[in-house]
Computed example of a mutant assay.
Amino acid sequence: MKVVVIGGTGLIGSKLVEKLAEHGHEAIPAAPNTGVNTLTGEGLAEVLKGASVVVDVSNSPSFADGPVMDFFRTSTTNLLKAEAEAGVTHHVALSVVGTERLQESGYFRAKQAQEELIKASGIPYTIVHATQFFEFVKAIAAEATDGDTVRLSSASIQPIVSDDVAAAVGRAAVGTPVGGVVEVAGPDVFPLDEMVRTGLAAADDPRTVVTDPHARYFGVELQETTLLPGPDAHIAETRFTDWLARQQ
Rank of each mutant, 00 (worst) to 15 (best):
G8N: 09
G7Y: 10
E46G: 03
R171K: 15
V137S: 06
S156H: 08
A144T: 08
E116H: 13
A201E: 14
T145F: 07
A30C: 01
V137Q: 03
T89Q: 15
V57Q: 02
E100R: 12
L152G: 07
P67V: 05
V55N: 04
A201H: 10
G175Q: 11
L16P: 01
E26C: 13
R109V: 13
R73F: 04
G175W: 09
L222W: 11
E26H: 13
I6E: 06
S60P: 01
A21C: 03
T241D: 15
T99F: 08
V210L: 13
S156P: 04
A64C: 10
R73A: 01
E116N: 11
R207Q: 11
F134H: 14
F240R: 02
V169C: 03
V210P: 02
F71C: 04
P159V: 03
L16K: 13
A64F: 05
V137N: 09
A113R: 03
G98V: 13
N59V: 01
G98Q: 09
I160E: 10
V178C: 11
H23I: 02
L102W: 08
P191K: 10
V150E: 11
I6D: 04
V189C: 02
Y125M: 00
K138T: 13
L11A: 13
T176W: 02
T176C: 04
R239F: 08
P159G: 08
H25G: 05
V92K: 04
N59E: 05
A84D: 07
L222E: 12
A30H: 02
I123Q: 06
I123N: 11
G230W: 04
V54S: 10
F134C: 03
H129E: 15
